[in-house]
């Protein structure tokens, strides 16, 4: 049985998001929590990329001499890719800030257990 790439990607994205939420909720180690949160962002990015995918499609560059009709029928959708690039950059900066704060908290508390640091 051949599974469609697009459908498989949608399921992977959903699985990543659910896993990330699970990690954010249940894992105590702050670094692992951050990895889980990164999973959520990755899942959404994967979903966006998959949205722009077109089975059998071609690269969305319009070259001289190309027929406009064929281009519109076969080119994949470029907007999601541009959006994913932006979103990855934002995700990376958020990740960096989170890890930076965790380093400071580790120096202060000597542990990275969420239940010890983040519970008042």
């Amino acid at each position: 049985m051949v599974i469609d790439v697009q459908v498989a990607s949608f399921f992977t994205a959903a699985a990543l998001i659910v896993l990330g939420l699970f990690a954010a909720l249940f894992i105590d180690n702050l670094i692992k929590k951050v990895i889980g949160l990164a999973f959520i962002a990755d899942g959404v990015n994967l979903f966006l990329v998959t949205l722009g995918y077109r089975p059998g499609g071609m690269v969305y560059i319009f070259l001289p001499g190309m027929s406009a009709d064929i281009f519109t029928q076969t080119a994949s959708y470029p907007l999601p890719f541009a959006m994913v690039l932006t979103s990855i950059v934002i995700g990376a900066s958020t990740l960096a800030v989170m890890l930076g704060i965790i380093i400071i908290l580790y120096k202060k508390h000597g542990t990275i257990s969420a239940s010890k640091i983040l519970n008042e």
Binding site: L21, A24, L25, A114, S115, L118, N119, E120
Partner: peptide, 16 residues
């Protein structure tokens, strides 16, 4: 409604 992160995130995901 205390400041414990576990409580917060529980309610957040429940709300979602």
């Amino acid at each position: 409604q205390n400041d414990s992160f576990n409580n917060m995130i529980f309610y957040v995901i429940l709300a979602l």
